[in-house]
């Protein structure tokens, strides 16, 4: 039951993008097309899960025993950066169109607060390794859910007769706000 609550919490109640406001940069940057959003979701899922597990291992096996907890942030960033590099290299080879459409946002996962936030939260909440894996995966799913929903809306908005001054990021931010408002309905589902 605990695991289920963890999943619901990470996907809906404390959705990384819409409730915690983490990872806004790729949320706005790669949500113009559904296919790109799906690709980004995959990349984030991979990086987030592996990075969280690696961070957990580093934290519990190295930092804590050697009393080096103050190195938490820098070592996590190191882990995430190498993960992202790996994904980037792989994508460039395996799916060039996706690589091109993700553009600058792929390397930007490196400094993505959602991924770092996930690693930090895992440590902060003192999750076990299994909990960490589930939480990271669910958080990535939540990120993906909001990204996919949002890209669906933006594809339709691209066809709308939006006033010139609101086109692009402006209207996207307003829409994200309303989406976030509606996600507040999930508040209280997990106490």
């Amino acid at each position: 039951m605990n695991i289920l609550l963890l999943v619901i919490s990470a996907i809906f109640v404390n959705n990384f993008v819409l409730a915690r406001f983490l990872g806004i940069c790729p949320f706005l940057g790669v949500s113009k097309k559904l296919s790109t959003a799906l690709g980004m979701t995959g990349a984030v899922m991979f990086v987030m899960t592996l990075a969280s597990i690696a961070s957990w291992l580093v934290y519990h096996l190295l930092l804590k025993p050697f009393d080096l907890v103050f190195l938490q942030t820098i070592s996590f960033i190191l882990i995430i950066a190498s993960m992202v590099q790996l994904v980037e290299l792989a994508l460039q080879k395996l799916s060039p169109p996706l690589y091109r459409s993700l553009g600058i946002f792929l390397p930007l996962i490196t400094t993505n607060c959602a991924v770092l936030g996930c690693a930090v939260l895992v440590v902060q909440n003192d999750y076990s390794l299994i909990q960490t894996t589930v939480f990271a995966l669910a958080a990535a799913v939540g990120f993906g859910l909001s990204l996919v929903l949002f890209s669906g809306i933006r594809e339709v908005l691209a066809l709308a007769d939006t006033p010139k001054s609101f086109r692009g990021t402006a209207i996207a931010l307003v829409t994200a706000g309303i989406l976030s408002l509606s996600f507040m309905g999930f508040a209280g589902l997990v106490k």
């Binding site: 580093v58 050697f66 080096l68 190195l71 820098i74 070592s75 190191l78 882990i79």
Partner: peptide, 8 residues
Amino acid sequence: PTALLTGM
């Protein structure tokens, strides 16, 4: 710390 980060 130096050793750790270098190692990683």
